[in-house]
Simulated assay, not measured.
Amino acid sequence: MDIVVNEELKAYIDPLTPEEYESLERSILAEGCRDALVLWGDVLVDGHNRYGICRKHDLPFQTVQNTRFQSMEDVHLWMIDQHLGRRSISDFQRGVLALRKREIVAARRAGNAASGGHAPQAPADGPADASTGNTPPPEPLDSREALARAARLSNSQVVMIEKIHKQATPEVVAAVKSGTISINAAAAVASLPAEEQVAAATAGKDELKQAAKRVREARRKPRDESAASPAASSEEGANASEETIESLRRRVAALTSENTALRKQVANLLDQLMARPGETAQETADTSAPF
C-alpha cells in the first residue's frame, strides 16, 4: 500500500535534533526497524523518522492500523499522549504538548455541549476501516494541577511555560527549545516588548540571560521599596509624635508660667484693696477737723 505522509502531522511534534536523528539512523542500520509504523488508513501517524530512514536505505518495516481514531483530533491526542509518555523530550516540550491537549479537550467538550452531549462522528473523508471503536474521553485539563500531572511538571513550571506559549516571540521560543536559555529565563524575557525579545534573542545567549536578569531586578525593586515604605512611614510617624509631645510640653510650660504671673497680679491687687479702707478713713477725719 501507498503510505501518505501528512506534513501537518509530521510537523505536529518537534523534530529530532540532528544528533538524535543520526543516533536513530545508526540504530536502524544496525538492528533494523524494530517498531511498527502506526497508520490511520493510509496516513502515517507515528514513525515519520523511521519511515524516512527505511526508504533512504531500502530497509523493510512493519505497519499497524490504529482502529480507534475517528477524527484528526483523536490522532492529535494520541500523538500527544505517546510523546508525553517518553522520557527523551524536554520539560518545555512536555508543557507545550499538555497545553495543546488542553485546547483540544476544551474544544471537544464545548462541541459536545453544543450538540447536546453527543460525541462527534467520524468525518466523511476519514478512512472507513479506522472507526471500529470509540476513543475514551481524555481527562479534562481545566486546572493547573491537572496540566502539571499530565506533563509531569511542577505547577510553577506550567505557569512559566504558559507565559512563554502566550507571550514569547518565535525567536525566544526557539532559544528555549534548543536549550540556549532555561524555562525560567525565557519566561522572564517573555515579559518584554516583542522588539526587545527579538533583539535579545538575536544577540545570543549572554544577552538573553542579561535581559532576564534585568526583568527580575525590575520586579524586585518595587517590592523592596514597598517593604521599606512602612518602615519609613513608621519612622516619620514616630518623629511627628515626638515633635507633638515636645510642642505640648512647651505649651504647658508657657501656660504654667502665665498662670503664675496672673496669680501674682491678683495677689497684688488684693493687697492694694485691703490697704485702701484705712487710707480713706484717715482722709475723712482730716477733712472733717475744725480750722
Score class of each variant (00 low, 15 high):
Ala148Lys: 04
Asn155Phe: 05
Asn268Glu: 15
Ser182Trp: 13
Glu145Leu: 05
Gly278Phe: 12
Ala150Val: 06
Asp142Pro: 04
Gln265Lys: 15
Cys33His: 00
Arg219Trp: 12
Ala201Val: 02
Pro222Cys: 02
Arg87Val: 06
Ala253Phe: 10
Thr135Arg: 02
Met160Gln: 12
Ser241Thr: 13
Arg216Leu: 11
Glu20Ile: 13
Ala289Gly: 07
Ala231His: 15
Glu8Ala: 06
Pro222Leu: 03
Val158Ala: 02
Pro120Arg: 09
Gly111Cys: 06
Leu262Asn: 13
Pro60Tyr: 05
Val64Met: 06
Leu269Asp: 09
Val159Thr: 12
Leu255Ser: 09
Tyr21Met: 05
Thr287Ser: 14
Val215Arg: 13
Asn134His: 04
Glu258Pro: 09
Glu8Leu: 06
Thr256Ala: 15
Asp74Cys: 04
Ala238Arg: 15
Ala106Asp: 12
Pro60Ala: 08
Lys264Ser: 09
Pro193Met: 04
Ser288Asn: 09
Lys56Gly: 03
Asp74Arg: 00
Leu141Gly: 03
Cys33Tyr: 00
Ala106Val: 11
Ser234Thr: 14
Pro230Gln: 02
Trp78Ser: 14
Ala146Gln: 09
Pro290Glu: 07
Gly47His: 02
Tyr51Arg: 03
Arg263Val: 00
Leu59Pro: 01
Phe92Gln: 07
Trp40Thr: 12
Val266Asp: 07
Ala240Asn: 11
Gln197Gly: 05
Val215His: 09
His76Cys: 07
Cys54Asp: 00
Glu139Ile: 15
Ile53Pro: 01
Pro230Phe: 08
Glu162Thr: 08
Glu171Thr: 09
Met274Asn: 10
Ser143Asn: 04
Leu37Phe: 00
Glu145Asp: 12
Asn49His: 14
Leu39Arg: 01
Lys101Arg: 14
Glu258Met: 11
Gln282Gly: 12
Ala289Thr: 10
Ser178Asp: 13
Ser27Pro: 02
Met160Tyr: 05
Asp286Lys: 14
Cys33Ile: 09
Ser229Val: 00
Ser191Thr: 04
Arg149Cys: 03
Pro18Cys: 07
Glu22Cys: 02
Ala168His: 05
Asp125Asn: 03
Leu270Ile: 02
Val158Cys: 02
Glu7Pro: 05
Ser288Thr: 15
Gly278Trp: 05
Gln167Trp: 06
Ala232Asp: 11
Tyr51Lys: 03
Met72Cys: 06
Ala203Asp: 12
Ile28Thr: 04
Arg220Lys: 14
Ile28Trp: 00
Gly179Asp: 10
Ala228Cys: 03
